[in-house]
Design a protein around this nucleic acid. Structure first.
Lengths: 192, 192, 192, 192
DNA sequence: CATGAATGAGCCTTCATTCAT
DNA sequence: TATGAATGAAGGCTCATTCAT
């Protein structure tokens, strides 16, 4: 693992553990096993690791989606898998997403956020588009816009369970069912 | 306006303008027109104004909803008003919401967030419940869970427009339409 | 008890408990049951209570000496009582003495300390003088100078026991015996 | 001179000049010719230099004793030299001793003080022990306990002169004589 | 490339003191 | 006399960043 990768991994670790404000460069370099000055050979400032962290995170999201959704299956099942993966992502990276969001909100323009999530949005757009072309979901959907709505919706639902709720397993199933029902209707899903 | 209110107003102003990390207590007291020490008579630390800000914000949200939605009109029109108000709220307070969310993520447990939004959730729950009882929306909806989904959905949509997008007015109408369509289907809206 | 007395008593309490630097005016007024501003009606500044505390302390010392030493008994027994009382004083007020000493060292001229202890020195001087006039102790002693030496000696001995040592009771008796032996020889005590 | 030594020397200087409470870290670093932050690389807090100062001071005391007392001469002359050195020490470091004592009283347990003075006590103990073994002072003395008494005694006497009195030179000789006389008797000194 | 000691600007917070009531 | 809210100066400490080695 290169020094740069070490730093990014250590930063993820430390930011998750301590939060943005309390994550010191000294913590990160300690976790990375490098010297204080070395950090600045790779990143110009403390918060400039954030985009790199975001990139790593989105890569993981994309991988999870691609691995978790079987393009062979019927759309209805795929949709269920999309929700499952979305929940897994929030479970595993929800705090990290919130962190990066906050980090970006504090530094650069929030618009940057769209670029970060772009691959996720693109995947979802394509997912809907294909279903639409096959007549599985209603034709009136604007897949580009709805892809963002759906991602927001899945995240909202998952946050209800993982960030806020306590009795997770129980709630999770109920929320997922409600969400799937919601999506079925929203997408005008036709059971072929 | 009491000193405490002055501080909260000034804090809102400064946090919005400078972001969490760069908002100094000295900025806040200057904006509030009080002495540095006075701040600490009302709040034990710099970030402890956050919950107070959140409370003010939610009060404004509730007021906006109650004023913006005419309970006399048919549900379909009310829903449109709900979306309109939701968009207005995000337009006006979106950055503040993001700020508070980040501020809370850095200090207390994220669960606190649910308490803050509780009145908004409660209103939405009741809104759906009445529609359901009148048979306007499908009976299979769990209004409590869906209220959160819908609020998340409206916020996602509005953020697309106001936080990220540039060409706002144009986009806004399209996104709103897409969202309303999405909701109509999701809720199984019956046009009476 | 007058307000002024209340303040002095509260100050003694708080200074003993928290030490000089950490004893806040707010602590003192709270302990005294008065308002913050009232303190400044009686004392011009935070540390200006110190002399008043010192005065109270010396009064207690004098009282203890006068009550604890029986002028009727032979000198040898009186000397033992003087040592006993000296030890009691250090046990009870040793920390306070150190406190006042430090407090004075930080503010005014250390010379003030002599004025504070003056009554104690005077009593000891007189005590020695009478013994000398009766031929009980050696004539070559300068009672004025030696009174200070002896007080310093008793305090040193008692501090060994109460401020520093752990196994107090055991040690105390041994130290007292050693000290008395030391004093007997130093004073050239004649057993009549 | 290492940075740490520079800090200690500067701290001694500043604490003596301004007293404990008014000695600011900024004063110390200025005197040491280093940056403010550098102070905290070597000491965790402002008052944590105190023990280091104490150590330096005791080293100086030991050096002064070893240089000022000629172990070859007869005990009586050595005792005079011990008193002379003791007076010199108080003259030169008396204020520092009071300072450190107060500083320690404010922070750590007072017991620490005994550890600091331990080398001085040990030297005196040994000094007495040898005289006792040679029959020069009375056999009934417990040298360990009396070493502390004697050090307390010398300090008391010297403080009378240097800390409190004005007409120093005059008084000094008289006090010294009185003290030596006092010690001769107390120790049961035999003039061989 | 790597190091880590050194820097120093800057902020949060405390608290003695004041003063209008 | 008494109050206690308000003041604001002041300082300990942190920590991102630099740079000589």
């Amino acid at each position: 693992m290169s020094k740069e990768e070490k730093i990014i991994q250590a930063a993820i670790e430390v930011f998750r553990e301590k939060g943005i404000e309390k994550a010191k460069v000294s913590d990160i370099v300690k976790a990375a096993g490098i010297a204080q000055g070395t950090f600045y050979l790779y990143f110009p400032s403390r918060l400039s690791v954030m985009p790199a962290i975001a990139k790593v995170m989105v890569e993981k999201i994309i991988t999870a989606i691609e691995e978790g959704v079987s393009t062979q299956k019927p759309f209805e099942q795929q949709l269920e898998e999309v929700v499952d993966v979305g929940f897994s992502i929030t479970k595993e990276y929800g705090d990290l997403v919130a962190l990066i969001y906050a980090g970006i909100a504090q530094t650069e323009h929030l618009k940057e956020w769209e670029n970060i999530y772009a691959p996720y949005y693109a995947w979802m757009d394509n997912f809907l588009l294909q279903a639409q072309q096959q007549g599985t979901i209603r034709a009136s959907i604007d897949t580009s816009r709805s892809s963002k709505l759906i991602i927001g919706l899945i995240e909202s639902a998952a946050e209800q369970v993982y960030l806020f709720d306590d009795c997770k397993d129980e709630t999770m199933k109920l929320v997922k069912l409600e969400l799937l029902d919601f999506l079925h209707h929203a997408l005008g899903l036709r059971h072929p």
